[in-house]
Design a protein around this nucleic acid. Structure first.
Lengths: 203, 203, 203, 203
DNA sequence: CATGAATGAGTTTTCATTCAT
DNA sequence: AATGAATGAAAACTCATTCAT
């Protein structure tokens, strides 16, 4: 019983540490964020951090890799909403871009780590797995869309990567997040998948 | 005469320092790259670095900002090659993506700095100027393409930003650079501008 | 309890650092004394010093300014011992000169800082306060002595400053400290106050 | 002939260096004054300084010790002006205090070096010679004054030292230099020699 | 003779990490 | 379990000094 309570407290504190670290790492980068800063943000002693994460590198790794599961579930959910492939892609694009504009912190951190693979090799490897799985998961939808004539032809693998690049790049653009900007970025992002213009068909 | 020689030697060494710093900063980030490492890469004492750049920050700034002029000239040149707007965009996209795949180091560094605007505010400001100018320079071509019917309608401002995001995001994808990947990324990138499918017209 | 012990240990160590720093700063000056030297003298790591004083400047300032309170209490006590003004001045002069000869280290340090007001402006300002208070405290005694006929007339303000100069200057003389030298320096220092020669009166 | 001209130029430049160094050393202390600063003040390259003084220490030593001859001549001249011993002491005290208030730079430097004998042992030794000679030179005047009844009795050796202390201490007092302050400091300084009050005698 | 370039030794300061309580 | 104290390993930056021109 006591153990359960303790476990709960531990998990809660662990979470707090991860959250604070996410914000600080995203804002100042890895080296410029100190364990003491993070501890202060959480309201514990810096030594306590080491009770939860053996090294600063481990903390950084956890900050970046642990949310990946949730993120994966999110995109899987997004890409299952809608009937036609195009609708599902639309749901995905809108969901991701919304997140990328309104909830940029974590994404920025992922990009930070992704941009320095020599420095964070383990993290980069794991992130690559994740990206590859994402590409792997989106390809069937693209293929289905092309088969159904909703999407113009094109190598689905590269289209998936192209979209991923687009999604990644948005994180660095600092466009003001509002209805308009999101709508436009969604529309333009969808273009990468080559949606067949209905206008055209009815000419 | 002696002065000329000296000036030349100085410039040469300055360049070497910038080159070595570019690589190291891109690989390990700002804080994790030490002046001593850079000096060793150049083959001089660490104190020598400070003869050319008063602080590490100055060196970093120079590494990122000094190439911007050349880069701007490059994209201006690229976007003037071709007759129709679409041709010019094609030239631009191909040129930039080629550079982004084959010459990724500098681009990665730009993204590194762009991703931490609170930490490198001066650099971020300057980079934003640059990006805004790029957007400003590409918009007229988009508009012309739309007027001529080569491009589908759409807000040119957001289209420009969308393409820029795409271009930026490619730097983090680590696709193997070859004919095929470049062709595909170019094709998919161009889609953002909404090229009107000829196939369609002749239906 | 533990807190009390800790506090005590901290204070003790803080004191040790201040003592070691006093000696080293007095011997080699500020710039030539290194934190590492001080740490070694105390028997701790150099990083420990920074746990007690955030910067070297702060340490220097503490070394000089913190004893001022005690010093003030000392001179106030000295100048209250004795009945007549002359007796009290005698007590003061003897006490200060004794200290200046037998306990020269701190005084030298004060002079070192006092001699470089542009370099240590905060310290110099604080020291000036102290000196002005000293002058202010001694003036009433001089006035009383003059009124009572124990002292020859003369502007008490300048007499106070003259004595203070004398006291200060002794710190640089490196006379061997013994009964004789102290007696003589006291006698000659007292002359600044213009004691009326008894011999004279009984002529 | 050329040699003579060169010699003259060299001496002139040497003098300029010493002058600039005097000011800077007095203002910022030894370690905080850099060779480059001095060179800039003189208008030459820092490397040039080393053509005139092999090391920074040598320069410092020259700055302090070379003027001693002149200073000695000055005090000898001052203490020979006047008929009676008291008059001559008066001339000396007035001259020195005037110099100490209006021309404080060099004096401050001497005190700076005098205050750190462990750090500048050679300079301190030389300065001690100088002080001893000064004491030695002033003692006969005191003795004569005492013999003539102009001065109260007292060990001339300690009186000489007492006056020297007074003179030294004035350098750190930062009293505003003007007619009044000088007059008062001279008057009070003279008291150290124990001038017999005429008033008294004629009672 | 004068100097600009180069450097190595040294100094303050930071910080992740360990440990005793 | 939590923490305050301690530290050693860096790292940026400075500066006297040397040397080639």
């Amino acid at each position: 019983m006591a153990r359960t309570v303790n476990k709960k407290l531990r998990d809660e504190r662990r979470r707090k540490i991860l959250d604070a670290a996410t914000v600080l790492f995203a804002q100042h980068g890895f080296s410029q964020s100190t364990i003491t800063q993070i501890a202060k943000a959480v309201g514990v002693s810096h030594a306590t951090i080491f009770l939860y994460f053996p090294t600063k590198d481990d903390l950084f790794q956890a900050v970046i890799l642990e949310p990946l599961d949730t993120t994966k579930k999110l995109y899987l959910s997004l890409m299952s909403q809608g009937n036609s492939p195009l609708e599902r892609l639309h749901s995905l694009v809108r969901g991701q871009i919304h997140r990328s504009l309104y909830n940029a912190t974590y994404l920025r951190l992922v990009q930070y780590a992704l941009g320095q693979p020599e420095r964070f090799p383990d993290i980069a490897k794991e992130l690559n797995h994740y990206v590859n799985r994402f590409v792997h998961d989106i390809i069937p939808i693209i293929e289905e869309g092309q088969r159904m004539g909703e999407l113009s032809p094109g190598d689905p693998f590269y289209i998936a990567w192209a979209y991923f690049s687009y999604y990644n790049g948005i994180g660095m653009c600092y466009l003001e997040p509002n209805e308009e900007s999101i709508n436009e970025l969604v529309k333009n992002g969808l273009r990468i998948f080559g949606p067949v213009e209905k206008v055209c068909n009815y000419d």
